[in-house]
Design a protein around this nucleic acid. Structure first.
Length: 877
RNA sequence: GCGGAAGUGGCGGAACGGCAGACGCGCUAGCCUCAGGAGCUAGUUGGAGCAAUCCAGUGGGGGUUCAAAUCCCCCCUUCCGCACCA
């Protein structure tokens, strides 16, 4: 709404900056005009901007909010740049805290979850984050988790969801199973309790079937932080090697055994393999126990390794221990018998659960061999090393030339590896193999507040998927929670007892629920079509909006959430819903906000509530400060003084716009570019135009290309400073806090009106260009303030519909440049030269300069370099 | 142990081989003011000098280059990730 501002003599009350009122006013305006809701529009380029959705804990502190503001700057900028921007938000609403709270309070988790969502949504709305709220989703609602079940069934049909009994990580505190990814240093990722082993029948997703694809796909993620890519690569942990069979020698008086298969990446060292090590869980161990002279003693020792050491193994430091099974195997390359031992450091889950030990070339094996006095044999020599077996304290792990290795002696790694694997295959004693560190994803959770697994167990038909038309399998409204180890759903007979979908006979439902990481593995696809009742999303909608162009969130999700999402994307591709591989084109991992050096948390009592800041300074000052304080991916320490500074900047912007609004307002439009101000400009006017366009260039690239939001704000501050300087040189003088007549310096005041109603037209045009650009570029950061100022400047349309200012390289170009002259690397002079001077001219002017001559007097000029910049570098001796 | 990132004024941070310290916080001075913890203007890496200016300077040490905070090598420190993966 343009304001009528007529200058009437000496009194000219300044408009006051009242951010809280502006926040309210513009938030209402955006909501009622559906400013940020979007539709599929194939005629326009799309931009999908997403921040990781939130767990509804009940409150968002400034650390959380930083991420949403980052995304909002991007979304608002892209909108102004002409993109059809999808910027949705939702809630990762299932999970343990809500259930635990419900157990404590004897209530149901749903109402509190919905309350929390309502409160946090209010917080985000008060910050003016431009979300398409009509697309809001909450994963705890049947409309959403129905499709978790749908996807589960698709995976079940494809053999990608399967059951197996396995030793799992059990958190005694959370009373649930954890995936490997959720165990951190042997402790629960959520509560920190030490994890223990348990044997359970579990559902798994076969993510390992996609291991190679997930690894290869990393190469295409060029707009991801290198750090995250590396973490994922290490997590997948591909290693190429060979599986080799070591035949087991018969026990005394017993039958000839079969064989132990080992996995090795260093088959070139196999002539140095002097014993075989089994993990305590290896399948052959029980048989060896049975065939031993004292089976009970044998089993006791194994049991000790299996239980006691497992804990130690998970937490890290463990003394290498083992014991002799009394059995031997034949090294198929040497043909010699080697002892078989059981060792606590051999992992059952990796490779074949058995290794060939090569003490000369593996540090762990060497330590083990020394401890138990087992033979050591050198099979590889590298770099002319001559270490003797007797004195060896460090295994030589380098590749080199093979020694004492039969027909391979003298050959060199890595070529010899290929040859040996090929030979092993010919002789049927081994085969080339690729192993991954990545494990299948255990998704069963013995909890209530999650998605029921849509499976029915029938005595006759076995494991049966719930038919699609019967989805969703709804969570029953259980209100009594015990927190016991079993799934709470086992205590709800009307849920458990059902009919078999195949035969109609009595059957039992699966009572475990899904890991909540399932919910977050595809929610970004649901946003494309959030109300679809028959499919997770319409393929056409996903084809238009996906992939996510800009995704931001915490580094803590660098592995889990992002890897699972990449996996789900490929599964849904194979199901036929989408055609792309990677869900997130560009990723930003935002840094945390610390208070008193620690991450904010309720328990530490160091939470900064955005609402408190809003009440004091308004949403825009908070938004601006959080963006200005540091680059988005950096951790920052919260500072009240910094926030105050950002508020001051907004007041300064407000004041300068208000100062000129009477002359610029009322005329409206976007006039004041190019032709209109082509007339005679003063030096000051040309300088302001140059600054304006240079700022447009810098801010645009800082936001869109570099994501340096802090320097984008700096540039805007510089432009404001320039505007103050320019204004000081006009008849009006600079604005002061209360722009009353008596505040103006007498010598600045010209004519009777203290705000002169007249300025030369080109001055007004230049100012309009600068101030319009300033307000437009400020708007992603401080949208409420910018909208209000935009109206004050006489623009009829809301700024949320306005276009980003255009950069004019011609204008930004300076007619004169200052060229530094270095002599022997030190700047000794600065020349003011017309822009575009040739290298030859620069060289001549530089050498003619008095200061330069002074520094070169009596010396020989050996070299003169004219560098782009420009800059002249003179070398003298 | 392996892998990654980072070390720049009193502080947060700028500078994608080319003028180190943009911008902000803090501080200092002047103006304006009854007053100001407001605002405006100016100054603010350290040292020397009235000054122009000079010297030193981006964790430490070497190197490449006309030119290094930036690239390379070694070392130190901090943070993060993985951690017996055969």
């Amino acid at each position: 709404m343009p304001r009528a501002r007529m200058v009437a003599g000496a009194t000219d009350p300044m408009t006051e900056y009242k951010p809280q009122q502006l926040d309210k006013k513009w938030q209402q305006a955006w909501t009622s005009s559906h400013a940020f809701e979007v539709d599929h529009d194939a005629s326009r380029p799309k931009f999908y901007c997403l921040e990781m959705f939130a767990y509804p804990s009940g409150y968002a502190h400034v650390g959380h909010v930083r991420n949403y503001i980052i995304g909002d700057i991007m979304a608002r900028t892209k909108r102004m740049r002409g993109y059809n921007v999808l910027h949705p938000f939702g809630w990762d609403a299932f999970g343990l805290p809500a259930e635990n709270a419900a157990i404590k309070a004897g209530t149901h988790p749903e109402p509190s979850t919905l309350d929390n969502i309502a409160h946090m949504k209010g917080q985000l709305q008060r910050l003016g984050i431009s979300y398409a709220w009509e697309r809001e989703i909450a994963t705890c609602l049947p409309e959403y988790y129905k499709f978790n079940q749908w996807i589960f069934l698709k995976m079940f049909e494809r053999g990608l969801a399967y059951r197996k009994r396995s030793t799992v990580n059990w958190c005694p505190s959370c009373q649930t199973v954890l995936a490997n990814e959720q165990v951190v240093d042997g402790a629960c990722w959520r509560c920190g309790t030490t994890v223990v082993a348990r044997d359970l029948e579990q559902w798994f997703f076969r993510i390992t079937a996609y291991a190679d694809q997930l690894l290869k796909g990393l190469d295409t993620l060029t707009d991801w932080p290198e750090k995250v890519v590396v973490m994922q690569r290490n997590w997948i942990g591909r290693s190429e090697g060979a599986r080799v069979k070591f035949p087991i020698a018969a026990a005394k008086g017993g039958a000839a055994g079969d064989r132990i298969e080992i996995f090795t990446t260093r088959i070139d060292t196999i002539y140095g393999a002097t014993f075989v090590l089994l993990s305590p869980e290896h399948a052959v161990v029980d048989r060896f126990a049975a065939e031993s002279s004292d089976p009970q003693a044998f089993r006791d020792r194994v049991a000790k390794f299996r239980t006691l050491d497992r804990e130690a193994r998970l937490t890290g430091a463990i003394e290498k221990e083992g014991f002799d099974t009394g059995r031997t195997a034949i090294n198929p390359f040497t043909g010699k018998a080697v002892p078989i031992w059981i060792a606590n450091f051999v992992l059952a889950e990796y490779g074949t659960g058995a290794i060939m030990a090569v003490p000369a070339h593996d540090q762990r094996d060497l330590e083990f061999a020394r401890k138990y006095n087992l033979p050591i044999r050198i099979a590889v020599r590298s770099g002319g090393a001559t270490t003797a077996v007797e004195t060896m304290t460090e295994a030589s792990t380098n590749y080199g030339t093979l020694v004492d290795s039969g027909e391979y002696t003298g050959q060199e790694a890595p070529a010899v590896l290929t040859r040996m694997i090929a030979d092993a295959e010919k002789r049927s004693i081994g085969t080339g193999e690729v192993q991954y560190r990545l494990k299948d994803w255990g998704v069963s959770r013995q909890r209530y507040w999650g998605t029921p697994i849509p499976i029915v167990y029938c005595d006759k038909d076995g494991v049966v998927g719930v038919p699609y038309e019967q989805l969703p399998v709804e969570l029953p409204k259980v209100t009594t929670f015990t927190g016991r180890g079993d799934s709470p759903l086992t205590q709800v007979p009307e849920f458990v007892n059902t009919k078999c979908p195949k035969c109609g006979g009595p059957a039992r439902r699966e009572t475990d629920t899904m890991d909540t990481f399932v919910d977050s593995s595809w929610y970004f696809l649901r946003f494309c079509d959030p109300n679809n009742g028959s499919l997770p999303f319409d393929p056409a909608a996903a084809a238009y909006w996906m992939p996510v162009d800009f995704y931001s969130g915490g580094v803590e999700h660098a592995i889990l959430h992002l890897l699972y999402s990449r996996f789900f994307t490929r599964v849904l591709r194979d199901v036929g819903l989408i055609t792309f591989d990677e869900p997130f084109k560009r990723l930003l991992t935002q840094g945390m906000v610390l208070k008193n050096g620690a991450v904010m948390s309720k328990s530490k009592g160091n939470v900064v509530d955005p609402d408190d800041m809003l009440a004091k300074y308004g949403a825009d000052a908070l938004r601006l400060y959080v963006m200005f304080v540091a680059p988005p991916e950096k951790e920052v320490e919260w500072s009240d003084a910094g926030l105050e500074g950002s508020f001051r900047f907004l007041v300064r912007v407000w004041r300068i716009v208000d100062h000129w609004a009477d002359l610029l307002g009322g005329r409206g439009g976007n006039g004041g570019t190019g032709a209109m101000i082509a007339g005679d400009l003063t030096d000051a006017e040309r300088a302001l135009r140059r600054k304006t366009h240079d700022t447009i260039r810098r801010v645009t690239s800082d936001i869109e290309d570099r994501m340096h939001l802090n320097t984008a704000v700096s540039s805007l501050m510089e432009l404001v400073n320039e505007l103050y300087g320019f204004t000081e040189g006009t008849s009006r003088g600079v604005p002061t806090r209360s722009a009353g007549a008596e505040r103006l310096r007498p010598e600045r005041a010209r004519g009777p009106a203290l705000r002169s109603p007249v300025e030369p037209p080109q001055t007004i045009a230049v100012l309009r260009e600068a101030i319009d650009a300033l307000v437009l570029m400020l708007s992603p950061f401080a949208p409420h303030t910018a909208e209000e100022l935009w109206g004050m400047l006489g623009h009829a349309d809301n700024l949320s519909k306005a276009r980003w200012p255009a950069f004019d390289a011609e204008v930004a170009k300076a007619e004169e440049v200052v060229v530094p002259v270095q002599i022997n690397g030190k700047v000794r002079a600065r020349l003011t030269v017309r822009a575009g001077a040739s290298d030859e001219e620069l060289r001549e002017v530089a050498l003619a300069d008095a200061a330069v001559r002074q520094h070169t007097a009596g010396k020989t000029i050996r070299k003169v370099v004219v560098a782009k910049g420009p800059l002249v570098s003179v070398v003298v001796q």
